[in-house]
């Protein structure tokens, strides 16, 4: 039993709307999970409930088999919230020392510098005088200060430039390699695809897909076989096979959609239609994402 996070039938309703609707999932030790979805899909509400900042209206949330707000849970989690938080009046080093003192086994300041890219100059700067990027690095350092087993990031890379973004993901992978469990929310598809081993796709407050990026792609967006063929050639024979979902022509290429592309290849050769330049195309996550979430835009 290595369940780090478990949500059972969790619902959160605000006065006029239900932000999260009957969500259940468990996250095991060492997983890197992306909570992906468009704005307003319930990502931040879900994360706030996992962190114990909001109480679910119904259902149960357990972290390390305890309630989220218990002290022994808090000692094992680190977090970076969407809103950059600074404590005015203190220098970066002082803030790091203060927050580290809350935890039983904190990382040292030197380690935090190496992991987050804060500089020695930053350490001497007062929190309120930091630039946006520096504040982000400070937040990252604060998330790691207690050497947490579970790290939760809400939209971590918003406001980061490419260099800090790369550095951020590099550190996250390093943490994952150490067996830490990582949950992050994002609306960048690419990020979820690149960084996560598992994606929880949120839409309208519910999880509409849960799996590896590859699984989600194969489940949602169909694969297709495409090729050039003599325009005179009739393709009617192919329609007779039930494995084929759809056939269409685009830019002189014929596209055959099917979940079983191996079988399609077999049929093409069986029927001797003279296909040239055959390609198998896997649906992009980008497309899957749009397919799944396009309904949300109409609702607004």
């Amino acid at each position: 039993m290595n369940k780090i996070v478990s949500l059972t039938n969790v619902t959160k309703s605000f006065q006029h709307k239900t932000a999260v609707n009957d969500v259940s999932f468990t996250i095991g030790k060492g997983e890197v999970v992306a909570i992906l979805g468009p704005n307003g899909a319930g990502k931040t509400t879900t994360i706030s409930m996992i962190l114990g900042l909001l109480k679910p209206s119904a259902g149960e949330i357990k972290l390390f088999n305890h309630q989220p707000h218990e002290k022994q849970v808090r000692e094992k989690i680190g977090t970076m919230l969407q809103e950059v938080s600074v404590m005015p009046g203190l220098k970066v080093r002082e803030i790091l020392e203060l927050i580290s003192s809350y935890y039983p086994n904190p990382l040292g300041i030197q380690q935090l510098i190496e992991l987050t890219g804060l500089t020695n100059q930053d350490l001497k700067t007062r929190a309120e005088k930091l630039s946006g990027g520096q504040k982000r690095r400070l937040s990252f350092a604060l998330a790691l200060a207690g050497n947490p087993e579970l790290i939760i990031f809400d939209e971590p890379t918003v406001g980061m430039d490419i260099t800090s973004r790369n550095r951020f993901w590099q550190t996250v992978h390093q943490m994952a390699a150490q067996g830490k469990t990582i949950i992050f929310s994002t609306h960048y598809l690419q990020e979820a695809d690149d960084a996560a081993g598992r994606i929880l796709l949120f839409k309208d407050g519910a999880v509409v897909a849960d799996g590896t990026p590859a699984q989600i792609k194969s489940r949602i967006s169909k694969q297709s076989v495409s090729f050039f063929v003599d325009p005179e050639m009739s393709l009617e024979k192919l329609y007779l096979h039930s494995e084929i979902d759809d056939i269409y022509r685009k830019n002189n290429r014929v596209y055959i959609q099917s979940s079983n592309t191996d079988r399609v290849l077999e049929l093409i050769f069986q029927e001797k239609i003279g296909a040239r330049d055959i390609q198998i195309e896997r649906g992009k996550l980008e497309e899957a994402f749009e397919q799944l979430t396009s309904g949300a835009k109409e609702a607004i």
Binding site: L51, G52, L53, K71, R74, E75, I77, T79, L81, E83, V84, S85, V86, M87, P88, I99, Y102, Y103, L142, G146
Partner: peptide, 18 residues
């Protein structure tokens, strides 16, 4: 007010500080 409006109070609630 500062601590609350700048998100610091929320962050503190997630730490083990009682």
């Amino acid at each position: 007010v500062q601590e609350r409006s700048q998100g610091w109070a929320t962050f503190i609630r997630i730490t083990p500080l009682s």
